[in-house]
């Protein structure tokens, strides 16, 4: 029962920089009418009518073309980092221009039927399931650009990690590293305590298939970590987005600092978290911090039809 991914419904159409082309067209037609009137020539009037047809098609047809644009994202990476380019591959059925809005990015011309790489620059951490773009077209004559804003669903969830702050340790609550080596998987995961329902962010490796089969819903194994052996960090981010971004960056820097010094780290995901998560790499830490708190991307992070 799978369903095809589609872009969100088209937003309101609007012309871009319309004053110049519209004024020029009106001026041209006025001059044409004046010449026809002065000369009494039917041919000038007929040519003017044709010019009006060209102008009308050139000015209005792009609205239709823009409304009918079919654009989809063909490929996107799993991970991205705030402040670093995120490259996706986009395919359009007809030629147009794509200007990324959220996340911002480089305006790119898309050729009909070709896959084109578009560069985005996410400026905050979070989960991205779609991007917001301005699709523009001036087809068929290139006289006036019309554009509309659309949400394009990403083919897969893109986790945008926070950018790592230059240095610093934040959110550290218990900073006593254990002496045990994290070589053993069992040691990493701790003692088995039971099972719980799957939550977003849980590793697929922790799925408890036996319990899942038994209960009918996806369950994951829950274990007790020997917290004394780990640096324990609590990821509590402020509500204010910028401050939260900075805090996440600093926390990531702290985690990376500990990991670089060989100290194992666990992160508590706020007050409501059932268990702390063991972190073994910067990527894992970034993915974890991307999920902390309210998703900064708002609707773009929600499920898109």
């Amino acid at each position: 029962m799978s369903r095809a991914r589609r872009s969100a419904p088209a937003g309101r159409l609007r012309p871009e920089r319309w004053a110049g082309p519209v004024t020029s067209a009106l001026l041209l037609l006025f001059v044409w009418a004046a010449v026809a009137h002065a000369s009494g020539s039917g041919w000038v009037q007929a040519l003017g009518a044709l010019a009006a047809g060209v102008a009308l098609v050139g000015l209005l047809a792009p609205a239709l073309a823009t409304n009918r644009l079919q654009v989809r994202i063909e490929a996107s990476p799993d991970d991205a980092t705030s402040g670093r380019p995120l490259r996706i591959k986009v395919r359009a059925e007809s030629s147009c221009r794509l200007t990324p809005v959220r996340p911002a990015g480089t305006p790119t011309n898309l050729s009909a039927g070709k896959s084109t790489e578009v560069e985005l620059l996410p400026d905050r951490r979070g989960l991205l399931r779609a991007i917001e773009v301005d699709l523009s077209s001036a087809a068929p004559f290139g006289l006036l650009w019309w554009s509309c804003r659309r949400h394009l669903a990403l083919p897969r969830l893109v986790v945008v990690s926070p950018a790592r702050a230059p240095s610093g340790r934040a959110g550290e609550e218990v900073a006593e590293p254990g002496s045990a080596s994290p070589a053993s998987r069992l040691a990493e995961e701790g003692e088995r305590r039971g099972s719980r329902e799957y939550q977003v962010g849980d590793s697929p490796r922790r799925v408890d298939w036996r319990s899942t089969a038994h209960t009918g819903s996806l369950m994951v194994k829950e274990s007790d970590l020997s917290l004394e052996r780990f640096v324990r960090l609590r990821a509590e981010l402020p509500e204010e987005p910028l401050a939260a971004e900075e805090a996440a960056s600093r926390l990531l820097a702290a985690i990376c600092g500990h990991l670089a010094e060989g100290r194992p780290v666990v992160v508590e995901l706020g007050e409501g978290a059932l268990h702390p998560s063991r972190v073994t790499s910067e990527r894992q830490a970034g993915r974890l911090l991307a999920r902390v708190g309210k998703n900064p991307w708002g609707a773009l992070g929600e499920e898109e039809r």
């Binding site: 002065a38 009494g40 039917g42 000038v44 009006a52 047809g53 009308l56």
Partner: peptide, 27 residues
């Protein structure tokens, strides 16, 4: 394809305008 479609619309607009507009009068 684009050319043919555009031409048809332009001709329709032009014929419509010629129908609507009065004949030019020499001044």
């Amino acid at each position: 394809g684009l050319l043919a479609g555009s031409l048809v619309i332009i001709l329709a607009v032009a014929i419509g305008l010629l129908i609507v507009l009065p004949a030019p009068r020499a001044t």
